[in-house]
Design a protein around this nucleic acid. Structure first.
Length: 612
RNA sequence: GCCCCAGUAGCUCAGUGGAUAGAGCAGCAGCCUUCUAAGCUGUUUGUCGGAGGUUCGAGUCCUCUCUGGGGCGCCA
């Protein structure tokens, strides 16, 4: 907000200098407004004199001086200095900063969308064979927050959960067999599912499912129970979806068969008895291509190596059953309908799925070719030795390379890294005694019990969810992190969730207590001005998060905002009956801070309590 | 073997290619007759794993390398 205004001023100054003939170009590239490292350097700094010095054909200092002189007449600035190698440092007048409080009161703190897109975000998507685990919790927290942020940045977002309920799924078959065994009073099979909840599923189905029900019918009923359980657990965690998309529905509608036929017709899938495996040497060059002879059955291969995958993938097994890859092709085609004419698909996957990036890109690339949506690039280079092993012709290579490029633009796979739980400084076991991974709902309940022992069940759940979400989101999703259970259950200033929520509660308390109208005024105290600057930075933070999907910065921002408020609170008394105008202007500042805090916490899916 | 992630203060971690690399915790010293002390103030802390390279400028980008975590099924 304030940065955009300053960038605008710099841009105008550049244009003005160009018109006056003192600057040879009308643009020096993107103008960025950064923080100053030292308070003595002023409020904000701009490095455009350094980045644009080549374009201008001037040395950075001279260019900086020129811009500074042009800008210094603006009454927003108390001073515009050139420092160091060519930084332009801005010192803003108190009046200029103060004006933003009025502005925030009447406009939104959300960024203005520059290039809104239609985006489908798929996240969590675990098999319907158990509760949501604490590992998936990170994906749930990350994915839902990413959706909120993308939406806040002006995009149309569709939240999607892919239900892996295909009849061909080995895992789901095993799950159904485990339930069936328990129903019939037998031991669960060797590699079966042994958690307590499996017994729960069996108990729930006893009576409602006929004793002679076949495995598929049983599987269907068990899945429905598990999906409902997952839905409830996620809802308790503040995670909701627009679509729970059934894999099996694609099979039932014949879309998988149709897509497989299209792949065959497009020559990106075939039944030749070889699988290509690429051995990648250092530097990413293909060193060798290995073939595996198959002597039985007709396996159908997706030639994903044509699209950068490291080996071809099975579409149809020797026994005739289609694999999940086959459904994936049809699924990705279908996903572009939610929302209609989707520009971009984002898939959030766990650390064990990072090998999927290549094959999912290949799936989309193959699908785009099968659908005739690829415009090949022209390239007259003859096939290289390695390319000749993958492609029959230059035309095919050009088509496939274009397809990969398009797929990479359309599909973004975000991998979140491992989360480790620590208790008393030591790694806590992720599995319960029954061998099953801890459920997210248990984590929420456990933290909630500690935080709000006297609370209602709803309050406990909210408290547990707040803490868990905040912790999951504190670190970059792309980094392994330790979830400190002791810290999460601490009711003290060490716990950052409460630090932020407490700032909000304090504001609510003051606004309630003050019996006068908040009216924005002039701010002169340092904590006031720093707080204003922090508040108006929110749109900028949201835009940045939406650009690179690094939503953890929003958590850092919330802590910084809370800190700025606590500083202000201690330094500047708000309610003072002997100075009504100051009280009113400070109340207005409290109010805009409240808006910023609420907006941020809402994006994070954390509640903003009015009292603590 | 290949792929992903990480290595920054005693600990946990921030860090838009920019200036003298920052917070929190822990330690020490203070602040409640005053709007919620779940708060605030002061103070100590660095071979940004290592080596090259690109750049006017590298914790940040590239290559190599060391250490640690994770992943590589006609399972999903």
């Amino acid at each position: 907000m304030i940065r955009e205004a300053l960038a605008q001023k710099v841009t105008s100054a550049i244009v003005a200098l160009h018109k006056a003939g003192t600057l040879p170009v009308a643009s020096l590239g993107t103008v960025e407004i950064a923080d100053t490292k030292q308070p003595e350097h002023g409020d904000y700094a701009c490095n455009v004199a350094m980045t644009g010095s080549k374009l201008a054909g001037m040395n950075p200092r001279a260019l900086g001086e020129m811009l500074a002189t042009e800008l210094s007449s603006d009454d927003a600035f108390e001073a515009v200095d050139v420092a160091g190698p060519g930084f332009i440092n801005f010192r803003l007048t108190q009046a200029y900063v103060s004006r933003f409080v009025t502005l925030v009161s009447c406009v939104s703190l959300l960024p203005t969308a520059s290039n809104p897109k239609k985006i489908n975000v798929e996240f969590v998507s675990v098999n319907p064979n158990g509760p949501i685990t604490i590992g998936s919790g990170r994906g749930a927290a990350y994915g839902s927050t990413l959706c909120n942020v993308l939406e806040a940045a002006g995009n149309e977002v569709h939240r999607e959960y892919y239900v892996n309920d295909g009849v061909n799924s080995e895992q789901m078959r095993l799950f159904a067999e485990s339930v069936k065994a328990l129903l019939e009073g037998r031991e669960v099979p060797e590699n079966g599912y042994k958690g307590d909840y499996v017994q729960g599923v069996a108990d729930a189905l006893r009576g409602s499912v006929p004793a002679d029900a076949d495995l598929n019918e049983l599987k269907l009923q068990a899945e429905l129970l598990m999906i409902e359980k997952q839905r409830l657990d996620l809802a308790a965690f503040g995670v909701n979806f627009d679509t729970w998309f059934s894999e099996q529905s694609l099979h039932d509608a014949g879309e998988v068969d149709a897509e497989v036929a299209a792949l065959l017709a497009s020559n990106v899938a075939d039944e030749k008895p070889v699988r290509t495996k690429l051995k990648l040497a250092k530097g990413g060059k293909i060193e060798d291509v290995e073939v595996e002879p198959q002597d039985e059955g007709d396996t159908l291969w997706l030639r994903s190596t044509k699209f950068g995958d490291d080996m071809d993938r099975v579409l149809r097994r020797r026994d005739g059953r289609l694999t999940y890859i086959a459904s994936d092709v049809a699924y990705h085609k279908d996903k572009f309908n939610r929302p209609a004419d989707t520009d971009k698909l984002i898939t959030v996957l766990g650390p064990d799925h990072h090998g999927y990036i290549g094959r999912l890109q290949a799936v989309v690339a193959a699908m785009l070719i099968a659908e005739g949506q690829v415009n090949p690039v022209s390239n007259d280079e003859p096939l290289s030795e390695t390319e000749a092993k993958l492609y029959a012709s230059m035309e095919e290579r050009n088509l496939c390379l274009a397809a990969i490029k398009q797929a990479q633009e359309k599909l973004d796979v975000q991998i979140f890294q491992l989360v480790r739980f620590l208790k008393d400084g030591k790694p806590a076991p992720m599995r319960k005694r029954d061998g099953n991974i801890f459920a997210l709902i248990d984590l929420i309940t456990e933290i909630g019990e500690k935080m709000r022992p006297e609370g209602t069940p709803e309050e406990k759940q909210q408290a547990g969810s707040d803490v868990a979400r905040f912790f999951y989101l504190m670190r970059s999703h792309d980094t392994t992190f330790d979830f400190d259970l002791n810290l999460a259950e601490t009711k003290s200033d060490e716990n950052p969730v409460f630090y932020v929520q407490y700032a909000h509660a304090r504001i609510c308390s003051i606004l309630k207590k003050a019996e006068m109208e908040p009216i924005a005024g002039q701010y002169t105290e340092r904590p006031e001005l720093e707080l204003i600057k922090k508040v108006v930075d929110l749109p900028n933070e949201i835009s940045r998060c939406a650009e690179d999907y690094g939503v953890h910065r929003l958590v850092t921002y919330s802590i910084e905002l809370a800190r700025a408020y606590h500083h202000f609170y201690n330094e500047c008394r708000v309610i003072n009956m002997e100075d009504i105008p100051t009280s009113q202007s400070r109340l207005a500042l409290c109010q805009v801070t409240q808006i910023a805090l609420q907006t941020t916490l809402k994006l994070l899916g954390v509640s903003a309590p009015e009292a603590m």
